[in-house]
Every structure is written in C-alpha cells, then in structure tokens.
Amino acid sequence: MNKRLERKHPLAIRWLHWINFPLLLMMIWSGLLIYWANAVYGLWIFNYEVFHFFPQWFYDVLGIPYRLAEGLRLHFFFMWLFAANGLIYVVYLAVSGEWRAILPVPGSFRRAVRVALHDVKIVKKLPPQGKFNDAQRIAYTAVILMGVGSVITGLAIYKPLQMAWLTSLLGGYGWARWMHFWLTILFVVFFFIHVVQVAIAGWANFRSMVTGYETVEAEGKPPAEAAEVKA
C-alpha cells in the first residue's frame, strides 16, 4: 500500500496559530477582569433575562473580583501582541496563497450545511473539498473577521475621543463596548466547537497542525498523476 506525506500546514501558519492561543486566552482573561467592574450584559428573550454574564459563583471560582487595574494593564499589553500576530497571519495568508484554502466560495454555505449534516451523521458523504471543508472555510474566515472586529471595537472604546468618528460609526461608546463583549463570547463559542471538532477528527489531524505533515493514501496512483494534482 502506497502512502504519501502531504505538507498540509506551512510553518508560519502553525506558529501563528499556536501563538494566537495563549494571546487570545490572555485577552479574554484580562477582558473578564475588566468586564466585572461593569457587568451589564445578559442573554435576553423578550423581557426575560435567560442568562446574566456572569453569575457570582463564576467570578468567585476564577478569582475575578476587584482586579480591574490588573485587567487593564494586561489587556493593554497583550493587545499589541494579539493584533500583531493577527496582522502577520492575514498578511501571510494573502502573500502565500494560503487564502485559497480558507476563503468561502460560491456554494460554500450550501455545502457547509451538508458538512454539518454529515457531522451529526445524517448524511453519509462529505462534499468534495480541498484542505478544509466548506464549514471550516466559513468558520476560519469568520474568526479572522471576528479578530478584525475585536480590534476595531476595542479601538473605539480605548480612544473614544481621538477615534470619535469610529466610535460614532459603531453607534457610540455603549454599543461599541456591547459589540466588543459579544465578539468575545463568539470567540469562546468558536474555541469550544473547534476543540470538539479537533478531538473528533483525531490524532493525525491534530498532529498535522503541529508537524505540518499528514500521511495520505496514494494507492495505485503513479507520481505523474500526483504532479498533476499539485498543478
């Protein structure tokens, strides 16, 4: 049985991906320390608050109360690293051509539904795909846009006077803070789905994000045909 090693994830993507993990974690953690001081958001259905961000036990368990100053210091330190890492990632995607593997294409949303149905075992066959399936394309593009959104809304609440045009564009200080908060919640949702999907996808898939390589089947395929695939 023939095997081939496929170079799946470039070195830069892997480093940027893994560096982003602790940076995003620190941004969310310091964000929580800040949010506690004015914890006003909840999940509302009509006039009923289904869930308030966050219950007291949540703060107590994590030791969050009365750490606003520390939260601000951390947030305004890690913001540079988080933004720089994200910027390098986007530039790398653009110049390396890796964006081709990530951007959704016409029909992606339709096929993403099939991917989701496949994931919950309703549909047997996955739609054809490249490195990532269409649900991944949508998710990974969305998370980049979320990062951009977090930087923009963050800037609007960090410098609401010097960037007054931006803050006004977002509907004012209060709305910008609201968006900044919900984008963070979306990041957390993304994180949990991502981890579950990686766990389901298995070790070889996870390992490829570390080593960059994945073993693929190449049964009976002459090298010439593989070269054609490369082109």
Binding site: R4, A101, R137
Partner: peptide
C-alpha cells in the same frame, strides 16, 4: 467540477513521493 471548492480557488497541495507503509511511518 464547480462543486469542488479547491478547484474554484485553484488551491494547490504539496504531496511527497509515494512511500511504503514503513517508510511513511
């Protein structure tokens, strides 16, 4: 062929030479 997202964006793959199971491992 339009169904294939990778083809639409001309996504390229880098695949090494064929190896037997032992070599690959």
């Amino acid at each position: 062929t339009r169904e294939n997202t990778a083809r639409i964006l001309n996504e390229k793959r880098v695949i090494g030479p064929p190896l037997d199971e032992k070599q690959a491992k």
